[in-house]
Design a protein around this nucleic acid. Structure first.
Length: 850
RNA sequence: GCGGAAGUGGCGGAAUGGCAGACGCACCAGCUUGAGGGGCUGGCGGGGGCAACCCCGUGGAGGUUCGAGUCCUCUCUUCCGCACCA
């Protein structure tokens, strides 16, 4: 008996794979391709088992697909720019490049020790000029097309990270990275015009049939399309300050059909007209103070979730363009400045928020939609009334169906010039400027005469200088490097100054999957031919935390690159799997919590395969799991058990020569049972990996096969491993050897995606040369899986009351007769009348009695 | 509030509308062993019975069906995402 020494096997096979370049690939038009990708890693220093789970999921898929004959691209890389490295530099003085490259080296070692089958020859790191060169290239292409633009705007500023955050990076008013309260600042920023693709990004979601619903829905909500109308309400001068003729307030509404019930206008505190109305009011100081309070409160509100609806009267009125009514203009703290027009028409009768506001300030309420026979009385209403039904008090539109009449009302508004149909999005353009060092320099120069000038493509990359001082101050560290800042204008040669902000690191990850297709290209981000072969990614897995940010940006970049002419598809990721996290003591693993499980510790104890197998077996890949040392031990024991049985049969199988179909002619029932189990396992493992990605059930069916092998072994003279090293008897039935060989070989191949080192060693010991790479994935034979005789359950009124044995090819009539003849069944039927007897596939007989 | 996912043994989890609890963990027993935290075999939802078997059981209540963990309606709970989005 050969001892199972996993650590030695790990090293042996990892070295062989590396030496032979086993996982390196090239374009091969003769074979179907399969691009398997896990979200690349931020090189934080150490990968814990939570990270590693994702890589193992991808590796199982990649290894399996390889054996199924696909040309598999399975690359890995590093999302290597980012704040932690820079923050560490501020603290310790270590240059981010050094700490990042050191971290990469360590983590790469960790992944290699796990035997993940990456094409390391294609490894990329986004912090290297060879990569970020093309961040700049893509940026310039966007600039050319008006998709990258600069504007002054109020931005989300994290006072702790000292940088700007995208809307997507603000979670409940706090920084996504450090949790600090985000404040607003006015800065000149670069934006990417993702909104131009809003409709396309939304429509494309329909084609993502192999994405989790949850992610599709999250993206749909994030894009937040709503159809409605922009309507003009002329401002009239009343009381102290007459309005200037032509002044009007535009509102956005999705329910123009309720406009006769628009009893007042509400402005966001930041609305541009607020300051004017305040200034012109009889008591400007008081109103100004109120407006200021609201503006501050509005930010707070994002943190707490809800605020009391408050507002104040501007003292002005506007004309409802449909009813002609003069309605008051108020300022309200719950109206958002950055959505729609920053102003709304309030319809208190049919909108709860407006209703609450009207009640609080005793503003009028007009019901304009009624669902039933009677019109609700505003005086007695306790909440807003439903807005679906028939219009009332709506002039010429009274009696029409709401909201169906909207189209007509929008058309009428357009004709009269008082409104226009409009679509609004929640999605905003993507601000990418960061006032930090460790990122891609934005390739722009500001010239005194030529203004904003893009760096010519041939001058790329704009290299990040190796500045020494990291201050952590709010201005970009690059601004303090005169050699970097001071340049001559590429257009006129005159004095100019470089942009000193760097790009959001999400730019880096928005196209890295394309770079893997052609990672060393020096003139283009990638060769379009290579991308046409490999892309789109067939299987992409990663954390659900990237459901919006990374995945939406990647979809956006892919479309831009399509329009630039580099790719010819819309969607980069065909199938998406969002893997669940690994918890320890009920919490997400993190260094600060001190609950990190280090894969290397587990490797030292059990080897890579036990860890791989455990992580795949413990739960379906999408589910969160709680780490368990006992569970890992269980998987190790299973590997031992599999090793022993394969090792036990090894000499016998090897002696019998290569696999073939000979020897399956005349089998006994135990032999037949093992064959059946073998083929059931082939079928199940194949489908569980390839189709369902239920890796846990794939492992459990392998366990069943091992159990069956033990049971089978016990029934043969050869015995089972525990009963002694030497076979107990001579095997004189070639059928025994044939079915055992088939089972053992299938086991070794099927388990290899999960436990590649163990499988390679066993495969070799079974007399095969060339490694598992040359081994074909076993084929399922449906005829073998069929049993000659089956046990047929009999249900009486839905409950199983008996069972009998029948030939598998028995006719339905025979089954019915046999079922009724069964003694137990007869007993249950008793004196009742048999109404119906039906045979379902299985087979199963169902008897209905009364 | 809107949207999504999910509720099954002590635990992780299995079940194209067809024998609920596969597989594993934990636990129990027997065997093996010098010994064991190793190995092998068996047991393991609840209740009843000497037994064959019987009754109950997939958060709850209805329904569809010969048959429901699975489909439909309502409801409760948990997790996740979005949220004064006009």
């Amino acid at each position: 008996m050969t001892d199972y020494k996993p650590q030695q096997l790990d090293a042996k096979w990892q070295n062989r794979w590396t030496a032979s370049g086993a996982f390196e690939v090239d374009i091969d038009p003769t074979r179907p391709k399969f691009y398997c990708l896990e979200m690349f890693a931020y090189p934080s220093g150490h990968a814990h088992v939570g990270h590693v789970r994702n890589y193992i999921i991808g590796d199982v898929m990649a290894r399996m697909k390889r054996m199924r004959g696909f040309n598999v691209l399975h690359p890995f890389g590093w999302d290597a720019f980012g704040l932690p490295a820079e923050n560490a530099a501020i603290k310790t003085g270590t240059h981010p490049e050094k700490s990042t490259l050191d971290n990469i080296a360590h983590m790469k070692g960790q992944l290699q020790r796990l035997g993940i089958s990456y094409a390391w020859g294609r490894e990329i790191a986004t912090c290297l000029p060879e990569y970020y060169h093309f961040n700049q290239w893509i940026f310039l292409k966007m600039f050319e097309r008006g998709l990258a633009y600069r504007r002054r705007s109020t931005v989300n500023w994290c006072p702790s990270c000292q940088t700007v955050l995208a809307n997507e990076q603000v979670i409940d008013g706090a920084c996504w990275r450090c949790g600090s309260v985000v404040v607003q600042r006015d800065l000149e920023q670069w934006f990417l015009r993702i909104t131009q693709y809003a409709d396309e990004l939304l429509a494309g979601l329909e084609t993502l049939t192999q994405w989790p619903d949850k992610v599709v829905v999250m993206q749909r909500n994030w894009i937040g399309r709503s159809e409605g109308a922009r309507v003009k309400f002329p401002v009239v001068g009343v009381r102290e300050a007459p309005g200037t003729p032509g002044d009007e307030i535009e509102v956005f509404t999705t329910r123009i059909d309720t406009i006769y019930g628009a009893n007042f206008i509400l402005l966001a505190p930041e609305h541009p007209m607020v300051d004017r109305f305040v200034a012109e009011s009889p008591d400007p100081a008081a109103l100004r103070a109120q407006a200021a309070t609201f503006r501050a409160l509005d930010r707070e509100a994002r943190l707490t979730g809800t605020i009391d609806k408050e507002g104040f009267d501007t003292g002005r009125t506007a004309i409802n363009p449909f009813s002609g009514q003069d309605i008051p203009i108020w300022v309200a703290n719950f109206v958002l400045a950055d959505y729609g027009t920053g102003a709304i028409m309030a319809v208190p009768a049919h909108d709860q928020r407006d209703f609450d506001f009207a009640r609080k300030y005793a503003l009028p309420i007009t019901v304009v939609v009624q669902a039933g026979e009677t019109t609700p009385d505003p005086a007695t209403m306790s909440e807003a009334s439903v807005a679906y039904g028939r219009l009332v008090h709506s002039g010429e539109y009274s009696g029409e169906a709401a909201p169906a009449v909207m189209a007509r009302m929008i058309a009428d508004a357009e004709e009269r010039g008082t409104g226009v149909g409009e679509v609004q999005y929640r999605l905003k353009d993507w601000g990418i400027s960061r006032q930090r060092y460790w990122g891609t320099p934005i390739p722009i120069v500001y010239c005194e005469t030529d203004g904003v000038v893009p760096v010519p493509l041939e001058d790329l990359p704009v290299r990040l200088p190796m500045v020494a001082a990291f201050t952590g101050r709010g201005d970009s560290p690059l601004a303090q490097v005169p050699e970097f800042v001071n340049v001559s204008c590429p257009r006129c040669g005159g004095p100019a100054r470089r942009e000193t902000d760097t790009m959001d690191t999400f730019v880096d990850s928005s196209w890295y999957f394309l770079r893997f297709c052609d990672p060393t290209n020096g003139t283009l981000p990638f060769d379009p031919v290579a991308a046409a072969y490999w892309m789109p990614v067939d299987f992409y897995s990663g954390g659900v935390e990237h459901a919006i940010l990374h995945l939406l940006y990647s979809r956006f970049f892919t479309r831009v690159l399509r329009d630039v002419g580099l790719v010819r598809f819309d969607e980069p990721f065909t199938r998406l799997l969002t893997q669940g996290m690994v918890l320890k003591d009920g919490a997400v693993m993190s260094k600060s919590k001190g609950n990190v499980v280090d894969p290397d510790t587990m490797l030292a104890k059990y080897g890579a395969d036990a860890l791989r197998l455990y992580v795949m077996f413990v739960a379906p890949p999408e589910k969160e799991v709680e780490w368990s040392d006992a569970g890992l031990e269980g998987s190790f024991r299973f590997l031992l058990r599999a090793w022993r049985i394969a090792d036990h049969w090894g000499p016998v199988v090897r002696q019998a020569g290569n696999s073939g179909t000979a020897g399956f002619a005349d089998l006994t029932e135990p032999e037949r049972a093992l064959r059946r189990k073998t083929h059931e396992t082939i079928k199940r493992v194949t489908a569980d990996i390839e189709e369902r990605v239920h890796l846990n059930t794939a492992v459990s069916s392998l366990m069943e096969l091992v159990n069956e092998l033990y049971a089978f072994s016990e029934s043969t003279p050869h015995g089972i491993p525990a009963r002694g090293d030497a076979p107990a008897g001579r095997i004189d039935r070639p059928e025994i050897v044939a079915v055992a060989r088939e089972a053992v070989e299938a086991l070794v191949v099927l388990i290899s995606p999960f436990a590649p080192h163990t499988a390679e060693e066993l495969w070799e010991s079974l007399g095969h040369t060339g490694g598992l790479a040359a081994a074909p994935w076993p084929a399922f034979d449906p005829d073998v899986a069929k049993a000659a005789e089956v046990v047929v359950p009999v249900q009486i009124n839905g409950k199983v009351r008996g069972r009998f044995s029948a030939r598998a090819d028995a006719s339905e009539d025979d089954l019915r007769a046999a079922a009724l003849a069964d003694a137990t069944v007869q007993q249950h039927i008793g004196g009742k009348t048999v109404v119906k007897v039906l045979v379902a596939k299985g087979p199963l007989v169902s008897v209905v009695v009364k």
